[in-house]
């Protein structure tokens, strides 16, 4: 007799096993990436053609020795105070040309945020974790000042605006004018407190 009711049903009983196999394969061969960190620009290797003369008071020297101790502008300080010290230096506004600064206008400290440079030096035997902590605090000092200005101008945190700007999905979501506006905002804040963090070559102490 001819077959009725079409082809016999394929057993789906082993479907789970097959799926488990695939699942285990992906578990083994893939990782969840940690893809975040501190962005830094290294200085180019060629020295600039013209020697730039920078006043000593516009440089905030941070030195880390091999024991992880911190020397900021010739004072031994605690790592926890570094952020506040750096902010005080950047926000100082010694020549009173910066209208948005709230610093002490100490003539011994930086002229204005455009001229202020933080120089970070470390020993060859400094531990990487200490170095990252110091970097983090210095970037944090910039971010806090930038956040303050962004709150004042746009009622939002700078970090938040920048993250939105850097997110590749934002470009598709926003139309062109809104995206340009966002870019403009990021640029404007960055210009108020330009990140001038110089990483000098490491010294080796004997």
């Amino acid at each position: 007799m001819a077959r009725r009711g079409g082809a016999p049903e394929v057993s789906a009983g082993s479907m789970a096993d097959i799926a488990f196999l695939l699942l285990i394969f992906f578990l083994v061969t893939t990782t969840i990436e940690t893809d975040a960190g501190l962005d830094r620009m290294l200085p180019p290797i060629e020295p600039p053609d013209v020697d730039v003369i920078i006043k000593e008071k516009n440089i905030f020297q941070v030195n880390i020795n091999k024991n992880g101790q911190l020397l900021a502008d010739d004072n031994l300080i605690d790592l926890k105070d570094l952020r506040a010290k750096a902010m005080e230096f950047l926000d100082n506004n010694g020549d009173a040309s910066c209208t948005y600064c709230k610093g002490k206008k100490n003539p011994e400290s930086s002229d204005n945020p455009q001229k202020a440079i933080i120089s970070l030096k470390n020993d060859r035997e400094t531990k990487y974790s200490t170095y990252i902590t110091v970097q983090n605090e210095l970037v944090g000092a910039y971010n806090e000042l930038r956040n303050r200005e962004a709150q004042r101008l746009f009622k939002r945190d700078f970090v938040e605006i920048e993250a939105e700007y850097l997110n590749p999905e934002t470009k598709d979501k926003l139309d062109e004018t809104a995206y340009d506006e966002l870019k403009e905002k990021v640029k404007r804040i960055q210009e108020l407190f330009p990140q001038k963090l110089s990483e000098a070559e490491t010294s080796s102490s004997n």
């Binding site: 893809d35 962005d39 830094r40 620009m41 290294l42 180019p44 790592l79 902590t133």
Partner: peptide, 21 residues
Amino acid sequence: RKVNALKVNYTTGSGDAFNNL
């Protein structure tokens, strides 16, 4: 710096930086 790859990212986890010490 010699090969002009100047953009670096010190990849880290997220958390309080003082935990490093």
